[in-house]
């Protein structure tokens, strides 16, 4: 391997091996072009998530993928609502167990499933942990951090029982909610998802949701192109110029959207859109079979546990 790399380096001209700032994703760039790099990161993460969702949701003969999307959505949303009524952190664990079991049965890669939860875990922990202290939530002392008598904390600083359980409860509630939502998004093809979500909304909003979803990808791809062009030119470094670039590109996307309006109007008409609402797509017959019954049973077990 090393030999091959060495041979390859010998064949590549020296000028091509130089890491010229502004022409690649080098480490030094992230510091100098924060707007470009961070925006690119969000665009790429958007496409990554979309591809991952599509791949997992297309798996055949799996538990949740084979369930009627309307039944699946209603049950998971009902679980989400039921979870919000649970007061005791321990009462949220059956919901988490349901998610892990359903994800495993549906072929969702568990490592990726938990990895997607990590940013939320980090963010919520940073927010929730100060609440464990008596300065935010007063209550019975659980763990003394600073003894009473200090000039800036006469009553001392300690973790309270109420604060601790409140912080744990918040972290668990946020994580289990996300587990439920990811279960839904990972196992439902985005197009079916929009169609199903739209079936609960009035015709006008359904049309908008369905059409706009398709154009999100188009505009995100344009944004990605804008970034690559800007990177390749090596222009616009520095906070002020980068912010100006972001403003101009935002406006350019808006103008692009306005220019697309007529094209989209003709496309919508050709596909059966008349007036303000889209002509009803014939949706699959509502199906409640063994899979749907199993999902309902599992959900009820989680709620009653």
């Amino acid at each position: 391997m090393e030999t091959n790399r060495g041979a390859a380096e010998k064949e590549i001209p020296g000028w091509l091996c130089l890491r010229e700032p502004g022409r690649g994703g080098g480490k030094n760039l992230s510091g100098k072009r924060p707007v470009l790099e961070r925006t690119l990161k969000s665009v790429l993460s958007f496409f990554d998530d979309a591809v991952f969702n599509e791949e997992v949701s297309k798996k055949k003969n799996m538990f949740l993928q084979g369930t009627d999307p309307r039944v699946k959505m209603l049950i998971i949303l009902a679980l989400l609502a039921a979870l919000s009524f649970v007061k005791n952190p321990a009462g949220m664990l059956p919901y988490a167990a349901f998610c892990v079991l359903a994800a495993a049965l549906s072929g969702v890669p568990l490592a990726k499933y938990f990895k997607r939860l990590f940013p939320a875990l980090l963010f919520t922990s940073v927010i929730a942990l100060p609440a464990a202290f008596n300065l935010i939530v007063p209550g019975r002392p659980l763990l003394m951090v600073l003894k009473p008598g200090a000039a800036f904390a006469k009553t001392g600083i300690f973790i309270t029982e109420q604060g601790f359980f409140s912080a744990v409860g918040l972290i668990l509630r946020v994580l289990v909610s996300l587990m439920l939502i990811f279960l839904l998004t990972f196992t439902t093809r985005p197009v079916d998802f929009i169609k199903t979500a739209g079936s609960f909304a009035p015709g006008f909003l359904k049309t908008l949701m369905s059409v706009s979803y398709r154009y999100i990808y188009f505009l995100a791809r344009r944004l990605e192109e804008f970034i690559f062009v800007q990177r390749a030119r090596g222009l616009g470094r520095g906070g002020g110029r980068e912010r100006a670039w972001a403003g101009a590109r935002g406006a350019a996307l808006l103008l692009l959207a306005l220019e697309l309006k007529d094209e989209l109007k003709f496309a919508m008409e050709a596909r059966g859109v008349s007036g303000h609402s889209i002509r009803e797509h014939r949706q699959k017959k509502f199906h409640f079979g063994a899979r749907e019954a199993a999902l309902l049973l599992l959900a009820l077990t989680a709620v009653l546990a």
Binding site: S212, Y215, I216, R249, G250, A257, L258, K261, K265
Partner: peptide
Amino acid sequence: KAAEVPLLALGAALSFVIMMFNVP
């Protein structure tokens, strides 16, 4: 007007993409 409905749909797509601009 019915002809302007696409504009609303594109407005929705645009606001989604605008939220991707990340300013440190």
